[in-house]
């Protein structure tokens, strides 16, 4: 596996292990957004649709599992639920860590692309709000924060 993929996974396995509740999940989110929005960071490079497709598939599968494990800790009752990752109920009251992890990864991926096009962090924040608000507890949605507009990408 090439360096950006391995680097991101090494960082993520440490940082996601520290996620145990809504507050630590929010910390993780803010760190990842900062990484993704930094041009040429390992995160920004790893999220591009480039490189060996099998390496990238393995990278995404392992990152997804790390995220799913963290979500299962944040929502303890969710861990006991059976999940096949593909089908099943998707009602708002039911939390499936595997499916949630897919949405979080998609939000990072798609949000990053939209943010790079717009040269504004807002789309990435909005995408992550949809994915993470159910776990954030009461608090202001980060999408309301439009103060940071990265430049020079």
């Amino acid at each position: 596996m090439n360096t950006p993929f391995a680097g991101v996974l090494a960082t993520e396995s440490v940082c996601l292990a520290a996620v145990t509740d809504g507050a630590t999940l929010a910390e993780w989110r803010h760190r990842v957004v900062k990484e993704v929005m930094t041009p040429q960071s390992p995160y920004a490079i790893a999220l591009r649709q480039a490189g060996d497709v099998r390496d990238r598939a393995e990278f995404l599968a392992r990152w997804r599992q790390l995220i799913a494990d963290a979500i299962a800790r944040v929502v303890p009752c969710a861990a006991a639920r059976p999940s096949d990752g593909a089908t099943g109920e998707s009602g708002p009251a039911v939390v499936d860590p595997q499916r949630t992890a897919v949405l979080i990864l998609a939000a990072l991926h798609g949000g990053c692309t939209l943010s790079q096009l717009a040269q504004d962090q807002w789309p990435l924040d909005a995408a992550l709000d949809v994915a993470l608000t159910p776990f954030a507890g009461p608090g202001s949605p980060a999408g309301a924060d439009t103060s940071t507009v990265p430049s020079g990408q």
């Binding site: 649709q49 497709v53 990238r56 598939a57 995404l60 897919v102 949405l103 990864l105 998609a106 939000a107 990072l108 991926h109 798609g110 949000g111 692309t113 939209l114 807002w122 789309p123 990435l124 909005a126 995408a127 992550l128 709000d129 949809v130 994915a131 949605p141 999408g143």
Partner: peptide, 24 residues
């Protein structure tokens, strides 16, 4: 916020396309 929800949905759509493309 309709704009926020639409942006979030577009992010999920585009990210979903990318994950599917990688996973074939």
């Amino acid at each position: 916020s309709v704009d926020q929800l639409a942006t979030g949905l577009m992010g999920a759509l585009q990210g979903g396309y990318m994950l599917a493309q990688t996973a074939r």
